[in-house]
Design a binder for these strands. Structure first.
Lengths: 195, 195
DNA sequence: CCCGGGATTCTATCAACGCTAGCCAATCTG
DNA sequence: CAGATTGGCTAGCGTTGATAGAATCCCGGG
């Protein structure tokens, strides 16, 4: 069996190589630069090898997206655990999320903009996706008012963050007022207790 | 001058024909079906005529987007003026906005998702864009708390709506809970006065 | 009435894209 | 050492957005 396992190991390693190369290329030059030919050249193989690992270019993007979700989850977790109060945690998570979107636009697009056939809101969603959402949820849950579904509230807050990121990135919202918009969003989602 | 004006009139008419054909094709079969060849066949001209009117495919999409903004502005206005209280107006505008995004996905993408070089947040933005934003602003402004910049608050609310539309449309959020998420968003942006 | 000149439209083509078919060689099996 | 099989590569298909240059039309002057 050792020979077969070696083959499988090499194959898995090459698959990681593909995803990593796609990710780096996308982050440095944008997804338009990630063509199958360019990617093949990058990994020093020919084009068709890509198709022995992935069904197509979209599947490669999906793999990159899953990796990106793991990164995002880690950053959200770091931001949340460094915060003190629940209100600060909500703000910190929002700040970390939008910063991630601004700092790694290509990764963000693969995760949340590009059409991709990953199961998202179901239990079969890849673990990193659920982890990232879970981080958001943990920050949002304390803000739920009686009768609010915490998951739905999280999704709604997420939508607000996502809207800020995408509208700003595509030039629909001026970037310089981002912090104030984020503060408004956080302010409206923070527990409404204090007058 | 009559002959030249006739030429210009015919030319302008053909330009409208291009935009209308692109819009109809996109709405019925999606933007992927809008290729320059297909579009040329639709207007019964050859491919290169398109490039004598627009710089490229993106410019055609931008023209469609401007048309779409006019439609959206009209729908938002209707929803707003049919509402009674300011809270109801905010909810009605949110409902109309997300319904527009769900009902005309191709149009919505051209307006707010696709990368396009239209000036958005500046004074030079095309009138329909400013009109659509103005409708939102009129619904949001009454909710501004002392010290809030109404324009920024509008942008933030817009981001929330945009996030809901895009995340749902791309499968990131389950569609069946849309109304409840929208209600949460509206609830958090409505004037926080009543306990 | 007819023909030259200028604008305009079409035919043909380009480079690049995602993806696939089929050959060829290196490797494992008996 | 011969035969079978796996796996990668060369080559190519069909489309895409965009362009260059030929051809055509149409108006105005002789």
């Amino acid at each position: 069996m050792t020979i077969q396992t070696r083959r499988e190991r090499e194959r898995a390693e090459r698959e990681r190589l593909i995803v990593t190369a796609a990710r780096q290329l996308a982050e440095s030059e944008g997804w338009d630069a990630v063509t199958t030919r360019r990617l093949a050249a990058e990994i020093e193989y020919s084009q068709p090898v890509l198709y022995s690992h992935f069904k197509g270019k979209d599947a490669i993007m999906a793999a990159v997206a899953v990796q990106g979700c793991a990164d995002l989850a880690a950053e959200l977790r770091a931001a949340r655990s460094a915060a003190g109060t629940a209100q600060e945690a909500l703000a910190a998570v929002g700040e970390a999320y939008t910063a991630f979107g601004g700092r790694r636009p290509a990764l963000y697009d693969a995760m949340f903009t590009h059409r991709v056939d990953l199961p998202f809101a179901t239990a079969e969603a890849p673990a990193p996706l659920r982890a990232a959402f879970g981080e958001l949820a943990q920050a949002v849950a304390p803000m739920a008012r009686p009768g609010d579904d915490p998951a739905l509230l999280t999704e709604t807050y997420w939508a607000g963050l996502h809207g800020l990121v995408t509208l700003m990135r595509s030039g629909r919202l001026p970037a310089e007022a981002h912090q104030r918009r984020l503060a408004l969003l956080v302010g409206h989602f923070a527990a409404s207790g204090p007058a």
